[in-house]
Nucleic acid binder design. Structure first.
Length: 890
DNA sequence: ACTCTGCGTAGAGGA
């Protein structure tokens, strides 16, 4: 039996006399989950008292294989020989994190905070691993080495490495692997598989094993190890994979570490054990150690405390991370072993208290987001296949059509879709392909090749393709953290003075006498402001104000002044839109950094491939006066090596502060373009991440901003409400033509429209009823209104329907062929005619209606006609919506 | 309550 639930009491470990001698125990009390059952006390024996030392009330705890017994008429619970105790099992710890924590808890913390920079040993190690996988798939060695090196061309180029020297080194490492593999092959006993992604719901561990041989984990290390035994942290890594296999009912009692550098060493230079492969046994003790280590990490993360490294008795003297450790502990005023071990006081000056608070707060906020990602993982096993499909997170009920081995040893898997379900999955994504049970059954990470009636994916190993799940990733979270680290701990004091409100942004008059845009004063001012900014310029661009055009003109002006410019935005779409405008203005000297399926087709010609000749690729990136990438990509190892004079960030009002910093960290000055009156960043948790840096800065330094006040999208009648409510009446049509535009311009005879749709802005109350997040009667009426516009001569592609809820979007989509989407997804685009379905009846309760910025977005998508469909009573229940109604009914 | 885009997956190592 397993017991699981939140801890209500944690007792101190103590020694007791038993008939076997003196033993230690600790009693913890938990409230069993899923019910109203009374709290129960569990006795944790011997080594599991460790959990009591690290846990605290409030944390979740899981005790497996509990022993139940009767004592004086009461049921008592205790750990048994088979028990494991897991602290905060929902927190998924990476296997590699367990490995670095075993080395030193500070190393774990530092890796997480500062990321692993681009360095040659790591890139080489990655290449050797990939070649290892290829060898297991029986691929030809020379072609594997050639291709794997080519794939890392950009990284190798940035590191100044030549193909031949890398190939020699990789070949020497590969020789060790080949030699060892051939021994196994001779006996014909070995059964291999490579790259196995493993997730453990019970132990809260995830990771990817390099390989399994006869079911036992094999870890490849490209370093050397001349001891007879594998390094302890390497054993722990392999044992962690063994633990997950143990959970799946596959007992594993050995592991193998393969140190490929050993055979490349000269016997006369070195003494020791030069054999590359070292087997070791994995007993229960090692598995328990893995769990206890993992518990230490989970407990530390629960408390968001900072590890000191004191519990490990290794010396800091030889540690590679010593300098980083000194800097981080010095800057943040942390207690750490590195300081204990140093005779002199830490020379690093601490950052001011307000910066420290800022760092701590955002650190916590980002970790909250990480937990939301972990919750996504949990759904892989907690939700049924049907629930996953309803959430658009999986394609289920696939019928396998076949598995075919490719020339490179990987597998192509095909299946037929049995329904027309949609999902978030896109071609090019990495997803979890499974036999129907992604975690408990057989799951493989796979790349989606085709996503039509037939589903085609490629994977390292074959699997019966019955289900395809979105695979959650912590990548964005990790990058937010390194961006925060770089900005606060490594950022220049000058920059931080502005970020923390100690100094107003400064401007030089570089633009004097230059007119950049001659028919729009605000746009021209915006370009001048950006050119003149010594620190930061803020461009506020309400809907339809020519933001993208202004951005392109700004970039050109900056480049003409000799600046190297980074163009960034949250979405690929915004990056590519800005690039398109830049190219429309005749500027082509651009490098686009990003994944192949993220970048729009018409920008692929300027996309920098990662694969190819190192020198050519590195030069292409270095020499580009304009580099464009999403803010997430700005946090990549490659982009973190780049530096710019100016960073220009579009859609800045939709970015979290750390998200914006990922881009601005790379440049001396920055320009943020956005509209804080439209939708804020999407985050899972409610915290400071919801407010953009753009908004904070424009509120702090209004004089460092320009608002584009002429809009080219909406008729006078349509823009009036948004202008008054959100832009203090300052937003105006750019020309008389824009103001006076009308459905007549599309060839529509207004007499052909029903009387209630004749005005450019109308309100219709269909007298429907909200059912969950839908309103079927309202959906019917919306479809009729669409048909009425179509009948009057409006083309279908000129009509758009907006609803707050996805459920209502689906409801309306079933009734019409025009574009229907949520407000959030409509941001950034527009249509001649927009119909908004409000869904709500009776009242407007709900977070979606509370944020009026969402309505600003919805109403400002329309150019010539806007029809609001909703319940008058509900809308009149809130003053803001009441004003909107009065305007629509005018 | 509800909105939902990114990311070469995770891991690759020095002595």
């Amino acid at each position: 039996m397993n017991l699981r639930g939140p801890l209500v009491d944690v007792g101190d470990p103590r020694e007791v006399e038993t008939r076997y001698g003196e033993r230690s125990l600790a009693e913890v009390t938990l409230r069993p989950e899923g019910g109203t059952a009374d709290p129960v006390t569990v006795t944790l024996w011997a080594k599991w008292t460790h959990a009591a030392e690290h846990a605290e009330p409030g944390m979740d705890i899981l005790v497996t294989d509990v022993e139940e017994s009767e004592y004086r008429g009461e049921t008592t619970y205790a750990t048994s020989k088979e028990s494991f105790v897991v602290v905060e099992p929902d927190f998924l710890v990476d296997v590699t994190d367990i490995r670095s924590w075993v080395r030193c808890s500070r190393v774990y913390y530092l890796n997480k905070l500062s990321g692993i920079p681009l360095n040659y040993p790591v890139v080489k190690g990655t290449i050797v691993h990939e070649v290892f996988g290829d060898l297991l798939r029986e691929r030809d060695l020379d072609s594997s080495i050639e291709e794997r090196i080519e794939e890392r061309g950009l990284e190798l180029g940035l590191l100044g490495r030549e193909v031949d020297e890398v190939a020699d080194e990789v070949r020497r490492n590969a020789a060790a692997i080949e030699g060892w593999l051939s021994q196994g092959k001779l006996t014909d006993e070995d059964e291999w598989r490579s790259e196995y992604t493993l997730i453990s719901p019970t132990f809260g561990i995830k990771g990817r094993a390099d390989a399994l041989r006869r079911g036992a984990p094999v870890e490849l290390k490209t370093g050397k190890n001349l001891n007879r035994d594998p390094r302890f942290q390497d054993k722990i890594q392999a044992a962690a994979y063994a633990l997950i296999l143990h959970e799946r009912g596959v007992p594993v009692d050995t592991g193998t570490l393969l140190y490929t550098k050993n055979t490349t060493l000269d016997r006369t230079e070195e003494s020791g054990d030069l054999s590359p492969a070292k087997d070791f046994s994995i007993g229960r003790g090692l598995l328990e150690f893995v769990v206890r280590t993992r518990n230490e990490i989970a407990a530390m993360e629960y408390e968001t405390s900072v590890p000191t490294g004191r519990e490990v008795n290794s010396k800091c003297q030889y540690c590679f991370d010593k300098d980083t450790c000194m800097v981080v502990s010095g800057r943040l005023g942390q207690e750490s072993k590195v300081e204990d071990n140093n005779p002199n006081p830490n020379p690093i000056t601490p950052i001011p208290e307000d910066e420290r608070d800022y760092f701590d707060q955002f650190y916590r906020d980002i970790e909250e987001e990480r937990r939301a990602v972990h919750a996504e993982y949990r759904k892989l096993w907690e939700q049924s296949a049907e629930e996953r499909a309803d959430d658009d997170r999986a394609l289920i009920g696939l019928e396998p059509l076949g598995e075919e081995e490719q020339p490179d040893g990987t597998w192509e898997l095909r299946a037929r879709k049995t329904d027309d379900a949609v999902s978030k999955l896109r071609e090019g994504d990495v997803a979890l392909a499974s036999d129907g049970h992604p975690v408990e059954g057989h799951g493989e990470l796979a790349r989606i090749v085709e996503l039509g009636d037939e589903v085609v994916v490629t994977a390292d190993e074959p699997v019966e393709l019955r289900r395809l799940d979105v695979y959650p990733s912590e990548l964005t979270t990790d990058r937010l953290l390194t961006a925060l680290h770089d900005a606060v701990l490594k950022g220049s004091p000058d920059r931080k003075d502005v970020l923390f409100g100690r100094r107003d942004p400064e401007f030089s008059d570089r633009s004097a006498g230059t007119t950049y845009i001659d028919n729009n004063e605000a746009q021209d001012d915006a370009v001048s402001l950006a050119v003149d900014a010594d620190d930061v310029a803020l461009v506020h661009g309400p809907p339809g104000t020519g933001k993208t055009y202004t951005i392109a003109r700004t970039i050109r002006a900056l480049v003409e002044d000799g600046n190297r410019v980074l163009l960034s935005a949250f979405t690929n779409r915004a990056v590519d839109n800005a690039l398109e405008a830049l190219r429309d203005q005749g500027f082509e000297d651009i490098v686009r950094v990003g994944s192949e399926n993220g970048v729009r087709d018409d920008m692929l010609d300027v996309r920098l491939s990662r694969s190819g000749d190192p020198n050519t690729l590195a030069a292409a990136l270095h020499d580009a006066p304009v580099v464009a990438s999403t803010t997430a990509s700005c946090g990549s190892r490659i982009m973190r090596e780049q530096s710019f004079d100016v960073a220009l960030v579009d859609e800045a009002s939709q970015l979290t502060e750390p998200g914006t910093l990922a881009a601005t960290n790379l440049a001396d000055r920055f320009v943020l373009v956005g509209d804080h009156k439209q939708l804020p960043p999407v985050v899972r948790a409610e915290n400071d991440l919801q407010k953009s840096l753009f908004q904070r800065l424009i509120e702090t330094y209004p004089e460092a901003s320009v608002m584009l006040d002429r809009q080219y999208r909406m008729s006078q009648r349509i823009q009036a409400f948004a202008s008054a409510e959100f832009y203090d009446g300052a937003l105006r049509p750019a020309t008389g033509e824009v103001a006076a535009q009308h459905l007549r311009d599309l060839g529509v005879d207004i007499a052909d429209l029903p009387a209630d749709l004749a005005d450019p802005v109308t309100f219709v109350d269909p007298d429907g009823r909200r059912v969950g997040n839908t309103n079927p009667v309202e959906a019917d009426r919306v479809a009729e209104i669409v048909a009425a516009y179509e009948d009057a001569g409006v083309a279908s592609e000129d009509i758009g329907v907006i609803a707050p809820f996805r459920a209502q979007v689906a409801e309306i989509s079933r009734r019409t062929d025009v574009t229907v989407d949520t407000v959030d997804r409509f941001q950034g685009s527009s249509k001649e005619v927009i119909i908004v379905s409000f869904v709500a009846t009776g009242d407007l309760d709900g977070p979606l209606f509370e944020d009026h910025r969402r309505i600003n977005v919805a109403l400002t998508r329309a150019k010539k006609a806007l029809c609001l469909v909703g319940d008058a009573d509900a809308l009149e229940s809130d003053p803001f919506y009441e004003r909107m109604l009065a305007w629509a009914r005018r």
